[in-house]
């Protein structure tokens, strides 16, 4: 299922991440483990990312973006499915292999006020990964730290070495967090809404920095946001997530110009534009997605979908190729299986 021309650095196949629903001790005693219910945070997603390319994941809050990201860096273990990183499935790595994986895959977290240890100064934050991964010489470490600070635009670096998180602005903190992700020179970085906590005027700087770094350092990148305008700015490919599944994925231009899945259309139309349009605000969707514990039968978007058909309440749609590396999970675009292989429904 590799649809990228270049060889994928990271390939995710039918990944599921389910969390047990916590029940009271009483219920557990009565029911035992039989009644165990699951939060299906990620429920069968597949995608791949190549070096030098960036994949975006967009969707409402609660659709499983963060869970996906954290699983890719093995903060969570996949429940089922594969996460193949440079040819190795990381699902059950341990020991030395896990350490080696950690050297190469990094994450930038959402909240720069939470993602830096309040008791570590910048130098300590950036040196820690180097120490862990066995860079013994203090001189070498310092040189790498300085170089990385320079890369993320915290110049002159010597000024920042001894600063603590509370002595820096939100933008500077996020730059430090990015520097920490880069200090090991990883080959893959996933950024989970890295600018949502930042003032809009400094977002541009952080976005440009990440864009540049992914390109210049030839990394594979992932960018997560609920705001498609940011995804559009950052990513080559875009996946739209709903309740744990990617309902549409394709080249960003295609998805943004002409979204096919009704949910993708809704998500797109909710994005405010900075131009004065004199259009009324459209309400793309009512309510909020249901809890990913009790999923409706058939299409999981069905209950909120304006174009629901009879089949949607019964049959769960499968991913369908619609050409140009684009896949949609929706009965509106139903085809016979071999049609899907041959046909190139372009994006006219």
């Amino acid at each position: 299922m590799t649809w990228d021309q270049r060889a994928a650095l990271l390939e995710v196949k039918d990944l599921k991440v389910h969390f047990p629903v916590r029940t009271s001790l009483m219920t557990q005693m009565v029911q035992g483990n039989r009644g165990q219910r699951w939060v299906k945070a990620v429920d069968g997603v597949s995608f791949s990312v190549a070096r030098g390319r960036t994949l975006g994941l967009a969707g409402e809050s609660g659709c499983g973006k963060t869970t996906t990201a954290k699983t890719l860096v093995r903060l969570y273990r996949p429940t089922t499915g594969q996460v193949v990183f440079e040819g190795t499935d990381i699902a059950n790595l341990g020991g030395r292999e896990l350490t080696s994986f950690r050297h190469r895959a990094q994450m930038v977290f959402q909240d720069p006020y939470e993602s830096l240890n309040p008791r570590f100064n910048v130098q300590a934050v950036l040196e820690e990964p180097l120490v862990i991964h066995g860079m013994k010489s203090a001189k070498e470490r310092l040189a790498r730290v300085m170089e990385t600070l320079e890369i993320v635009g915290l110049t002159p670096p010597s000024v920042y070495l001894s600063r603590f998180p509370h002595q820096m602005s939100g933008g500077q903190r996020q730059r430090v967090a990015i520097a920490r992700a880069l200090v090991l020179r990883p080959s893959f970085v996933v950024a989970d809404e890295p600018v949502s906590m930042l003032d809009v005027s400094i977002r541009a700087g952080i976005l440009n920095l990440m864009k540049q770094l992914i390109r210049n350092m030839n990394m594979a990148g992932m960018y997560i946001s609920h705001d498609l305008s940011l995804i559009r700015y950052m990513c080559d490919r875009t996946g739209i997530m709903y309740l744990g599944r990617i309902v549409e994925i394709g080249e960003t231009d295609d998805v943004v110009r002409k979204p096919m899945h009704p949910y993708a259309q809704a998500l797109l139309s909710a994005v405010p534009v900075p131009e004065v349009t004199h259009e009324e605000i459209k309400v793309p969707l009512e309510g909020e997605p249901p809890n990913p514990v009790d999923l409706p039968p058939g299409c999981r978007f069905g209950p909120r979908c304006g174009r629901r058909m009879d089949i949607c309440t019964r049959v769960e749609p499968r991913p369908m190729a619609v050409g140009n590396g684009r896949w949609v999970e929706c009965h509106l675009y139903r085809q016979t299986p071999d049609q899907a292989d041959q046909e190139m429904v372009g994006n006219e």
Binding site: K70, V73, L75, L98, T99, R102, H103, A105, Q106, M107, F109, Q110, D111, E114, S115, L116, N117, P118, E128, P129, I132, H133, A177, R180, L184
Partner: peptide, 22 residues
């Protein structure tokens, strides 16, 4: 659950290191 702990894990920090240093 604060993300600096998760970030340390992603950096490869061992459990004793996270407990003692972070």
């Amino acid at each position: 659950h604060r993300s600096f702990i998760e970030a340390a894990k992603v950096s490869g920090a061992s459990d004793p290191r996270i407990i003692l240093r972070h």
